[in-house]
Design a protein around this nucleic acid. Sequence first.
DNA 1: CTGTTAGCGCGTTCAT
DNA 2: ATGAACGCGCTAACAG
Lengths: 343, 343
Amino acid sequence: MGDRTTIYDIAKRLNITAATVSRALSNNSKISKKTRELVFKTAEEMNYRQNKLALALKSGKSNNVGVIVPRIDRNIFSAVIRGIEENLHSEGYQVIICQSHDDEKLEIENIDALINAQVDGIIMSLTLETSEKNKAIKRIVKKGIPLIFFDRKKDIEGVSTVTINDFEGGYKATQHLIDQGCKEIAHLAGDFAIEIYEDRYKGYREALSDNGIEFREEFLIHTSSKVEDGQKATRALLKLKERPDAIFSASDFVALGAIQELRAQGIKIPQDFCVVGFSNEPFTKFMELSMSTIDQSPRDMGKIAANVFLEQVTNNDNVKIQKKVVLAPELLIRDSSSRLPIK
Amino acid sequence: MGDRTTIYDIAKRLNITAATVSRALSNNSKISKKTRELVFKTAEEMNYRQNKLALALKSGKSNNVGVIVPRIDRNIFSAVIRGIEENLHSEGYQVIICQSHDDEKLEIENIDALINAQVDGIIMSLTLETSEKNKAIKRIVKKGIPLIFFDRKKDIEGVSTVTINDFEGGYKATQHLIDQGCKEIAHLAGDFAIEIYEDRYKGYREALSDNGIEFREEFLIHTSSKVEDGQKATRALLKLKERPDAIFSASDFVALGAIQELRAQGIKIPQDFCVVGFSNEPFTKFMELSMSTIDQSPRDMGKIAANVFLEQVTNNDNVKIQKKVVLAPELLIRDSSSRLPIK
DNA sequence: CTGTTAGCGCGTTCAT
DNA sequence: ATGAACGCGCTAACAG
């Protein structure tokens, strides 16, 4: 039935010892060609498969890598995971996925479960940062488990990161709006407790400043990343005495809400108002009025994160590798902000 | 450093035996309250964590469940996985994800890797069916590993399935188009080697037949699920002497291509032409002209698949459970097919 | 109630 | 070139 054949079974059949079988299978150099071939043949016949669990217990390496994301059904995260899986699969690693749902308790729980499962590495996108969380992260580092942050980073000794340059993304988006002739650019921002949102904001500020445009408090609105929040914020902006003529949103979903509200109020895009989002969610391309946005090349991000892990785990020097890979964001100019007939 | 404390460590500290510690930790009834408490306290102090790998080797149960999907960055699949993870996490299981990329070799490879990793169950969406693949699937069943198909099913003895009623989906979509006054309904179909696509087609046929509408060969076009294929197919349809006045597409992406092509040719939707897709991809809701489609409630599908697994694995009777859960598809009527001012 | 022993399947010394 | 013995960390069977 469900009985596996072990190296003992094939040893018995061949009247040799399990150790020999083990060695033959691992292509140990000092095994006679004859027995090696015999072992391989018999293993094949008996449909032998190495028991990963035994190997893992013995070696302390599970050949599993844990990935923690807020939620998997968000394009950027599933795309990253796709990249990770693709580059890890070929190296014999399997990917365990965990969702934190932006809940700190859950995230810590996931971390401990992964440590406990003896994963060989952890690749994660942080949610919020708290002291409790930092302890959990320290636990990973202390155990010597390679840890890589992507997207939502944080500078921690011994932790590698793969991110895009969010500052540059914010800067590019804003500069582009300015180039389109917009003067009064509002920013729909995420929670500044999360670094990436703060960075996008800083990029926005810098671009304004570099162009001699004054920043206005009332043009900065914090939102969660829901469509409705974009509508609400936009409604608020349009009620101001001095209205903005463009929005740079740190989230595509919020930008979508903004566009919906603008159209509902009969405002012409991009003639009278320009909008740029962030993340290149798939739907942005498919909208009738396609949305300009910043692409984060999430799949590459995943592939690179996987490679950083592999380097780290392969590296037998005692020197700790700590890589900081920063990808360049790409501005995708689409209908929602292109007044000039480019594209 | 990375040294874990084991039950031996805490046994030594307490001058008792490891077995006692193990029993205390697992709340074995015949352990004195005193030692139990002592053990728990010391375990806490020494920051003990049960080694899952050792447990797995011992018990043969890894507490991992494998999930195989064609690709993870497709909304329906990531949504299913989200549901699976949510319902399995609380039961202490971890989810290993694999991508088949619709490549048979890769899929078989994944199956064997999962068996090999001693997963306690496998939840998967089949790609194509071949004899080679069937062997791999038989291997799973023979090992007694609970196996659950979702979305893309296949009737196999001992395998549970969680699907939506694709026939009904096809029927509903087509009937809806007829109700809108469409008479010449084309169908952009997927590969009939995959059951779900055949079922959607059958539903389409049945609806036509039930309404006394004759089926036309030239109105059936097979496509892959790419946007461009929808454009191409639509271009072909519009070249026919007798043009269709509606399209039911088995894929949202193909339906999108159709809409793009129709608009490019200046055809008014939904006045002159109606379109219904399938899957409720997120972008369908966000299009300027939102697209009617069939919702598959993928997250529920995942949750149910997880529950079926849990039932199966909990079930200690020797009776094999084999469940067939069929969810009802929901027709979402949106702009691309609603001529009546509903909604 | 607790200790002793054994074994899950594998790789790895230490012998030979 | 191969065998014997051991241990990874844990639980379970069998004492007592």
